[in-house]
């Protein structure tokens, strides 16, 4: 029996605390750039916990774990790129 499956409560608690943190950063730290990085960072951590512990990819064949974790990293990197470089590279609509 995988260790984490014996304690999904811990994963749930971390996810709830992380949600509270993103909410707080989004509300209180709504000052732009750093808050964006923190928000995407916490989103990645939460998504990874769901993928590894709830979807049980931590104990899945490595290929599937790499594919899904690779998607997570790629999307997070693209979101950060669009967030920070988008305003410089994309045309402003009127």
């Amino acid at each position: 029996m995988p260790a984490i499956l014996q304690n999904p409560h811990r994963t749930w608690l971390i996810l709830v605390l992380a949600t509270a943190t993103t909410f707080w950063v989004g509300v209180e730290g709504g000052i732009g750039l750093a808050a964006g990085a923190v928000t995407f960072g916490i989103t990645w951590i939460k998504a990874r916990l769901v993928v590894l512990d709830f979807m049980e990819l931590r104990h899945a064949p490595p290929l599937w774990r790499r594919i899904i974790e690779g998607w997570l990293i790629a999307v997070t990197a693209l979101l950060l790129t669009a967030y920070y470089l988008g305003p410089m590279l994309l045309p402003r609509a009127a």
Binding site: G26, V27, A35, T39, F40, T43, K46
Partner: peptide, 12 residues
Amino acid sequence: WIFLFPLLYLLR
């Protein structure tokens, strides 16, 4: 939803 929530509700 873990992605949709911060993108739609929080990101400034």
